[in-house]
Design a protein around this nucleic acid. Sequence first.
DNA 1: AACTCGGGGCA
DNA 2: TGCCCAGAGTT
Length: 221
Amino acid sequence: MGKPVRKRLPAKEAARALEIFERLAAFMPEPKTELAFYSPFTLLVAVVLSAQATDKSVNKATEKLYARADTPEKMAALGAEGITPFIQSIGLYRNKAKNVAALSRILLEQYGGQVPLERAALQALPGVGRKTASVVLNELDIEPAIAVDTHVFRVAHRLKLSSGRVPDAVEAELMAVVPPAFLAKAHHWLILHGRYTCLARRPKCEVCPIADLCPSRDLFV
DNA sequence: AACTCGGGGCA
DNA sequence: TGCCCAGAGTT
């Protein structure tokens, strides 16, 4: 019971992890997310909509959507049919419109129109899984979390910061390896690093600030 | 573990 | 044109 014990790392691994994140810190911007939002509710909706979509396309859609509905009340009143036109430029829009409408109704009926700031409650909402809950909790400073998506998974494995096969295992590994001071920002940094430098097909090792710390570098150069 | 949803962005 | 995108739910 009690607080989860942070596994002690071999000194050499801990030093390498620290060096990795200190160097990333020097290259990465301050915000923890590039999704546009201004309340827990609009954050939650933005993250739900961002599944398998780019942050730019999501921001473009939510800008107009939030002008119409920025609260669970208004969103629930809009309904899936009303939400759809705003998000048709995003993929998977039928599922997402249905989920956002349903989720808004649940917030109204069960949580007094507030976003529950607790993992189990969040993940019970339609369209909200492990990854979305992690992003929301981390962004709102409720609990530090490292949401594992395709970028994070790939980058963490190449850096040998993780070796697990499923996201839950990878997140646990990263929570143990990432220096505490960088926990809250590690997710965004790993995302950006994966998107702009550590590309899936042809990573840009030649311009990578941590290439000399990467066990996988020789696979790509 | 495999499938489905999905239009837009980008090489 | 083909591949990928800040995933989640169902089978």
